[in-house]
Design a binder for these strands. Structure first.
Length: 487
RNA sequence: GCCCUCAUCGUCUAGAGGCCCAGGACUCCGCCCUUUCAAGGCGGCAGCACGGGUUCGAAUCCCGUUGGGGGCACCA
């Protein structure tokens, strides 16, 4: 089990789905979950990147047994810190003939690729430098060419049992010799993964299907290292997560950054739950579960082989379910950071603010499919009175001259109220507006709602009025009246 | 072009020869509940890509076709 992202930006949805399956498989089987950072294409990854990746994984609730910040007996877990290990193996392959120096320039390769393509031949490396004579080598060196180290793919074919797809075979005729070390001396992924898998004693690899056809190359390197077949890791290739346009999910066709979902009010348990469903199912029509339940039920046999489309609507539905399932106190803790970001509570939160939040939270919890919606709905309650505003469209619809009598009657009824409770508020408003003015409840409460909350959609009105308190409520009705009067 | 791979409602999926004239969820549409919006309840639209086999019997097995995806880098 291993999860090895390469640091090309934020951890994205596809990475995380892979990590999740790796994690669940490791936990289910009691194995070791190794988190390795594949950064051979960089001098070194920034500490910020590692910190962000670690942070995202931890936020989701995934923990690893070996890797960054955790250590382990097969470290270091950053490939950029293992360069001399790879260099050692490259030298050895050169010496024993598993690899050779290739002096072809990128331009030459490109033009020969083009030619092969136009002639309908396979565009891979043509073996040009496989058997150079000492004279040819000397000539290239004299030209100042710097060689790459290229792996000599043996004849034959490779068959391996993919743990998700079953037996897969590749004829080596279609697996061209590939580069292990660049001309500047930097090792490539092709070398590093294979070496690390063996050195880190990886038993199972779950990765994207884009790597399916590079598996025979990896296996060939294991063989060259002298590793016995039974010590090779098992490979499982997961289908991609696609966007709705059926193209691999990316920045172009959707939100891919897990950090984005985090900042837009998605719960980690919802993200995990939804991602788990993209290619796996516990069966029996079950689709809501915790990470622990997933680990319990996760088997490779139940992983789907076909790619799944990412559906934001479904994610939101699950997020809403998870939000509703939160204990009330937990929900408060989850929205507090968002309220602070929105400037609706101080940081740290004061006792008074917390009181209001705790009062309002139960009203919005079941109405939110994202935490950010809860924040929007609670705004009227937490905003400083001088910053309170009524949405333009709501005012235009509900705070009109015709509604003046309604607002006035509501104000009067509430002003005379002795006990300021939800039920008292409701009774007073019903008596004044529904019975008194003969209005349908729907129409009676709409202007009041807009005056009190500033929006046409809000938490339940009577509870909101109770929480707002007498003074603030009456003052907002006064302001609403002024607006309705054309103020 | 060649190689690999995949194929159940619009989407995610259950289904591992008869339990399926295909079940659940999301979306969408009605209705109920209702102070708005949600939630909840009830109901509805909608699918086994196609063609051949195998079998008493196929969504499930085999072959082909079509379609999708991936790969063929001094990326990973």
């Amino acid at each position: 089990m291993r999860f090895a992202p390469s640091p090309s930006g934020d951890l994205h949805v596809g990475n995380i789905r892979t990590a999740l399956y790796d994690w669940a498989y490791a936990r289910h089987t009691g194995g070791t979950f190794v988190f390795r950072i594949e950064d051979t294409d960089r001098i070194r990854v920034t500490d910020e990147y590692i910190a962000a990746a670690v942070d995202t994984l931890r936020w989701l609730g995934l923990d690893w047994d070996e890797g960054p910040e955790k250590g382990g007996e097969h470290g270091p877990y950053l490939q950029s810190q293992r360069m001399d290990i790879y260099a050692g193996w490259a030298r050895r392959f050169l010496d024993d003939g598993h690899a050779y120096s290739c002096y072809c320039t990128p331009e030459e390769l490109e033009s020969r690729r083009e030619q092969a393509r136009s002639e309908g031949r396979a565009p891979g490396y043509d073996g040009h430098c496989r058997a150079l004579s000492p004279e040819q080598v000397a000539a290239y060196v004299a030209e100042g060419r710097r060689p790459v180290v290229r792996f000599r793919m043996p004849e034959g074919s490779t068959t391996f049992a993919d743990s998700i797809r079953g037996e897969v075979t590749f004829d080596h005729a279609f697996v061209p010799d590939f580069v292990l070390v660049r001309a500047d001396g930097y090792p490539l992924y092709t070398l590093a993964v294979a070496v690390d898998d063996i050195l880190m004693k990886i038993t199972d690899v779950l990765r994207g299907e884009d790597l399916l056809s590079s598996t025979p190359r990896q296996i060939a390197v294991y063989r060259a290292m002298g590793v016995a077949d039974e010590d090779f890791p098992r490979f499982g290739h997961l289908p991609f997560v696609m966007g709705t346009d059926n193209v691999k999910l990316s920045k172009r066709n959707g939100e891919v950054s897990v950090a984005w979902y985090r900042h837009h009010g998605f719960l980690p348990e919802a993200v995990c739950n939804y991602l788990a469903l993209l290619g796996w199912s516990p069966g029996e029509d079950r689709e809501l579960f915790s990470l622990e339940e997933m680990a319990e039920a996760f088997t490779l046999e139940r992983v789907n082989r076909n790619p799944a489309r990412f559906d934001m609507k479904k994610l939101e539905a699950i997020n809403g379910d998870k939000i509703r399932a939160l204990p009330a106190a937990d929900f408060v803790e989850r929205i507090l950071p968002f309220l602070a970001t929105a400037g609706l509570v101080s940081n740290p939160v004061t006792a008074e603010e917390r009181g209001l939040v705790e009062g309002g939270a139960p009203l919005v919890q079941e109405r939110s499919s994202r935490l950010t919606e809860a924040v929007e709905m609670l705004g009227f309650l937490l905003v400083d009175e001088e910053h309170f505003t009524v949405e333009e469209e709501a005012a235009a619809r509900a705070l009109t001259p015709e509604q003046r009598p309604v607002l006035a009657a509501a104000r009067e009824a509430l002003a005379g109220l002795g006990e300021w409770t939800t039920s008292a508020v409701e009774a007073a408003l019903r008596a004044a507006l529904v019975e008194g003015l003969g209005l349908k409840p729907k129409h009676a409460f709409s202007p009041v709602r807009v005056a009190i909350t500033g929006r046409r959609v809000s938490p339940p009105l009577f509870e909101s009025i109770e929480l707002l308190g007498r003074e603030r409520s009456l003052s907002r009705l006064d302001d609403g009246l002024a607006v309705a009067s054309g103020g």
